[in-house]
Amino acid sequence: MTEDFSIVEPADVPTTRFDTCETAVRKLTEPLGCVELRVNQVIVEPGEVTTPHTHEGQEEVFVALTDGQISIADEIHDVPEGGIVRVDPETVRNLLNRTEETHVWLAFGAPPIGTVDDFGAYVVPDDR
């Protein structure tokens, strides 16, 4: 891999689980060599819900690789395949799946905070 670019096939990166829920994630930041943002592929199976959270100081962009659902400030939004969602750092967000199909997302966070394994400033509101 050169320092100028990298190409990663997400399926080649093993899945892990988020610390706060059972949702599968492929942490792509390190394999891509990213230093200015965090990148994850999130796989949300039917019935799964990721933990509602914010990221102090980190804006997130979600790209729906399939049809998907996201909750932003407790309002659920259906996002079509190819749809893109931006969420500011202080807004509570989480992915969920109330369908019978698997949802696959790419999640980008910038600026990078914490480490690949410990996202740092990951805030779960007290009222959850």
Rank of each mutant, 00 (worst) to 15 (best):
E48A: 09
R93A: 00
L28M: 06
V35R: 15
S6D: 06
F18Y: 10
W105I: 01
T66F: 07
D67G: 14
L95F: 01
I76T: 15
T102G: 00
E101C: 05
T54Y: 01
E90P: 03
R93G: 05
V61K: 00
A121D: 13
E9H: 12
W105A: 00
H53K: 02
I113G: 14
C21Y: 07
P89F: 10
V25F: 07
R98C: 00
S6A: 15
T115I: 01
S6R: 14
R26Y: 07
F62T: 06
Y122W: 13
P89R: 11
V123M: 13
V13D: 08
G47K: 09
F5G: 05
V124P: 00
R93E: 01
A107E: 12
V35E: 15
Q41A: 12
V25T: 07
D19E: 13
E100F: 02
F119T: 04
Q69C: 10
E90I: 00
H53A: 07
E100C: 04
E22P: 05
E30I: 10
T102C: 06
D127M: 05
V42M: 03
G83V: 02
P14K: 07
D12I: 02
V25Y: 03
V123R: 14
F5D: 02
E48Q: 15
I76E: 09
L37A: 14
D127W: 08
I43M: 01
R17E: 11
E101L: 11
V39L: 15
A73W: 02
T91E: 12
N94I: 00
T2M: 15
V116G: 03
T20C: 08
E60K: 00
L95I: 04
T2P: 15
A107M: 11
T20N: 11
E3A: 10
Q69F: 04
T15R: 04
G109I: 07
A121Q: 11
E3G: 13
A121P: 05
M1S: 12
F62H: 11
